[in-house]
């Protein structure tokens, strides 16, 4: 599109829109830094002056929050590991090997993303309890991976398919073994795709709620999202501590996004429109 005559005017417009749009996020930070006495009332403070860390110490003083943060970290790391472990060979085979039924498999992976979590949570609740893996990290990691794995393959398959076959063949001719081809040619080329998948899987695992709510009753394994929800119910009006908790939960999200931003945006659009 043609460059605008006053590009800074566009910048100003976009900045205003972003500011209005992100008001809730600012408000979360603002409330979390405001003294508890000044949070409730008809005229809220738009700037946290004087700022206080009181809400954060109140929130982090609770062992339950630390435990839940740890649980979420374990769960989302497990989800990343399991997704890559299953996803990489699966997408490599689907991209590279002419197999009977590979078209059906890709279709099945697209369909696998359709069911609402609650529909899957219901039978998993019964089955995991019978198998004795309800209330375990494993049960939650496995449930979350049903969300990430189909998505991962849909993102990774085109990336792997994009590696020129000629390059692989040339390397083979030059005496590079099949393993060498994978390690030296294919893997480096798929790093952006892997990073995107790892980052997004982590975010999905970190933010997951439905399975955490239904498949775990034990505080020793429940993710932090479930804890936040029960906080909202219990301490409905201590918004300072609630917003401090919410902010703490957001920290890893923002970090992961800041580091992997480029990869994630690319992977996200690739996975959605391209399929």
């Amino acid at each position: 599109m043609k460059p605008a005559r006053h590009p800074w005017l566009l910048t100003a417009t976009a900045t205003l829109i972003c500011a209005a749009f992100l008001l809730p996020v600012y408000w979360m930070l603002n409330t979390s830094l405001t003294e508890p006495d000044h949070i409730l009332g008809e005229s809220p403070r738009w700037i946290p002056a004087p700022a206080t860390t009181e809400n954060y110490s109140a929130a982090l003083d609770d062992d339950a929050l630390l435990q839940a943060l740890f649980n979420s970290l374990v769960i989302s790391s497990g989800v990343v590991a399991l997704t890559l472990l299953f996803g990489v060979p699966l997408s490599y085979a689907l991209a590279r090997v002419r197999m009977r039924g590979s078209g059906t498999m890709v279709l099945a992976l697209l369909v696998a993303q359709l069911p609402p979590s609650i529909v899957l949570a219901a039978p998993l609740f019964i089955l995991e309890r019978r198998a004795g893996i309800d209330d375990t990290y494993l049960g939650l990691i496995a449930a979350d991976t049903t969300l990430t794995l189909p998505f991962a393959v849909i993102v990774l398959r085109p990336v792997l398919g994009g590696v020129p076959r000629d390059v692989e063949e040339a390397a083979l001719v030059d005496g590079c073994g099949l393993m060498g081809v994978l390690l030296r040619i294919v893997l480096p080329l798929m790093v952006p795709g892997l990073v995107a998948v790892a980052g997004l899987s982590f975010l999905i695992g970190w933010g997951e709620f439905v399975f955490g709510l239904t498949l775990a009753q034990e505080p020793g394994v429940q993710p932090v999202t479930v804890l936040l929800n029960s906080f909202v119910g219990q301490h409905g009006t201590s918004w300072g501590a609630l917003m401090a908790t919410a902010t703490v939960i957001c920290v890893p999200v923002v970090c992961v996004f800041a580091i992997f931003q480029r990869f994630i945006v690319g992977g996200l659009t690739a996975g959605s429109i391209k399929g």
Partner: peptide, 30 residues
């Protein structure tokens, strides 16, 4: 359209989408 800070502002908007839904829900409740 191209304008200065386009990429940065766009990424900032995306943050809203990446927040865990439970967090956004709590946020809007408040």
């Amino acid at each position: 359209r191209p304008f200065p800070l386009n990429g940065l502002l766009r990424s900032l908007l995306l943050v809203a989408w990446l927040l865990p839904p439970v967090v956004s829900g709590t946020l809007f409740r408040w």
